[in-house]
Design a protein around this nucleic acid. Structure first.
Length: 482
RNA sequence: GGUGCCAUCGCCAAGUGGUAAGGCCGCAGCCUGCAAAGCUGCUAUCCCCAGUUCAAAUCUGGGUGGCACCUCCA
């Protein structure tokens, strides 16, 4: 398969470090707030990548971290007068619930920053020993960017001209303005925090950690490098993991700094392939709290089926920026409906697990840097062909079995069509209403048999008043929520 | 200011040198008691200008218009 490597800026063949295996590390959420559509997009993209790697026969090791040490978490704890753990556990749980609603499969590993401190200490020490990092008088430890000749090679940036001047301004704390903290001493931390009126309940001890470098907490960039070394790194390989992923905004500085840390502390680079997903905008504008247009996943899930959101967010190429709006989401739903209608036509029949020509074509498209558009076009074509044959030769057994197999493959590789088709179309309708609808349909069928079309049409109007549509088929009358 | 990305039918969106996929909407038809669903057919020369080439949406140069990142961010 081929992937676009954002470090080399070309699409290239995926060749794993270990034959038959693929390791993937993705930057997960910082658990200080509800997940928004951007988190959903990123998680979905890498969920798809994992599924496609597996479909290509790779044994996949997939890690997605939880950042549970961060300034924003501390701020939230202060403003809400809660313990750090209460905050991080709450948002970790809601993240998991929401990901599950989107059909995102669980990673093999979900390391937390708080559980990886030893690995971070080790990494910092190695960087100090090799003169790539230095402690300051204030107790912080910084990475010396000038000691890494390859610094900025990932994000392809040029060093600022003003850098030398900044050295003077920084009054000896940092050697270079680009240097970033590996360890922040506890003193600096509280200077960074806003003054809060209800600070009394805050427990400072819960956010500082003892380390060989003093009391404090690790820098954000360090967390990922350390967790990768601890959980995924393959001894004596040229890179710690095959693929490192995350949102496009993480390329700089986060991934640049991660790459520098690992490169300087170990004898390997951090990853062979860098995969970055595009941004989610809302109605053409960047989603941000200052613009007041953040779209939280939990709110979207109240209005829309998780699988519809999955289909919509995955329906354009993962590297493109995604412009979220509800009109397009409705269009995506219509496309997903087609999968479910075909599924409904074949409901209850056994599948045939021989690989079909369709499956091969679909996998080929997805293996080309996750070309979702071509994949969806193939799916639509398959659906049309199947419907046409079912219309004309309804008893074609082989075709039915092949189609069911195709649908099962779509479910496995793309996660589309995973629900019971009847439940999918009737989601959100109360049992009482369902019973009424079924009774009215039965009455209408009788009227139709008696060719009393006046009554049957009247009954149909009553049914449609529930906000549903009905369709007569050889298997009987079905209804769907509109 | 620096770095990079993008511009394809009314809307969404593939295609990176060989003569424009797919979905939605629309129109016509088949099916249907009528609908719905499904099926069939129809609908673009690719922002502008110049160049390279036998051949360009695809490459080069210029222009116009969007957007992102530049140490909070998926």
């Amino acid at each position: 398969m081929h992937l676009f490597d954002s470090a080399k800026k070309i699409k290239r063949e995926f060749i794993p470090l270990v034959e038959g295996k693929a390791s993937l590390y993705v930057c997960g959420p910082t658990v200080y707030d509800d997940a928004h559509l951007g988190h959903a997009k990123s998680s979905l993209v890498f969920d798809l990548l994992v599924r496609v790697l597996k479909a290509n026969g790779y044994e996949v090791i997939y890690a997605r971290n939880i950042t549970d040490i961060d300034d924003k978490i501390i701020q939230k704890a202060i403003t809400q007068n809660k313990d750090i753990k209460e905050i991080t556990e709450f948002y970790t749980d809601s993240f998991h619930t929401e990901m599950s609603a989107l059909g995102v499969q669980k990673p093999n590993l979900e390391p937390k920053a708080t559980e990886s401190l030893e690995a971070m200490f080790e990494l910092i020490q190695k960087l100090i020993d090799s003169n790539h990092a230095y402690p300051t008088a204030e107790g912080d430890v910084y990475f010396d960017t000038s000691s890494d000749s390859e610094y900025l090679s990932l994000s392809n940036r040029v060093q600022d001209e003003g850098d030398k001047q900044n050295r003077v301004e920084s009054s000896g704390l940092k050697k270079n303005s680009a240097d970033f903290a590996l360890w922040k001493s506890v003193k600096e931390e509280y200077n960074d925090l806003p003054v809060s009126s209800d600070k009394d309940g805050f427990k400072p001890s819960s956010v500082t950690f003892d380390s060989p470098f003093g009391k404090g907490r690790p820098g954000w960039h360090l967390e990922c490098s350390a967790m990768i070394e601890k959980h995924l790194a393959i001894p004596n390989a040229e890179a710690a993991v095959d693929i490192h992923g995350g949102g496009a905004d993480l390329l700089f500085p986060h991934h640049e700094n991660e790459a520098a840390q690992t490169r300087c502390a170990t004898n390997h680079k951090i990853a062979n392939y860098w995969v970055h997903n595009g941004f989610v905008n809302i109605d053409g504008e960047k989603m941000s709290k200052s613009l007041g247009n953040s779209f939280f996943l939990k709110d979207a899930l109240k209005e829309y089926d998780g699988e519809v959101l999955r289909f919509y967010l995955l329906s354009t190429h993962y590297r493109s920026n995604f412009n979220f709006n509800t009109q397009d989401l409705e269009l995506a739903k219509k496309r997903l409906d087609k999968i479910y209608r075909l599924k409904k036509r074949l409901f209850g029949l056994a599948e045939n697990r021989d690989k079909t020509a369709f499956e091969e074509k679909l996998l080929k498209a997805l293996s080309d840097d996750l070309n979702i558009s071509t994949s969806l076009a193939l799916i639509d074509e398959m659906i049309s062909n199947a419907n046409e044959t079912l219309d004309t030769a309804g008893k074609h057994k082989l075709l039915k079995r092949e189609t069911i197999s195709n649908l099962a493959y779509i479910e496995e590789v793309l996660g589309f069509g995973v629900k019971n088709p009847f439940e999918y179309f009737q989601a959100g309708v109360e049992e009482e209403t369902k019973t009424k609808i079924v009774k009215l349909i039965a009455s209408r069928d009788e009227a139709k048999k008696a060719k009393d079309f006046e009554s049957s049409d009247k009954l149909r109007d009553e049914i449609l008043a529930f906000g549903v549509s009905i369709m007569d088929t050889p298997q009987g009358t079905f209804w769907e929520k509109i």
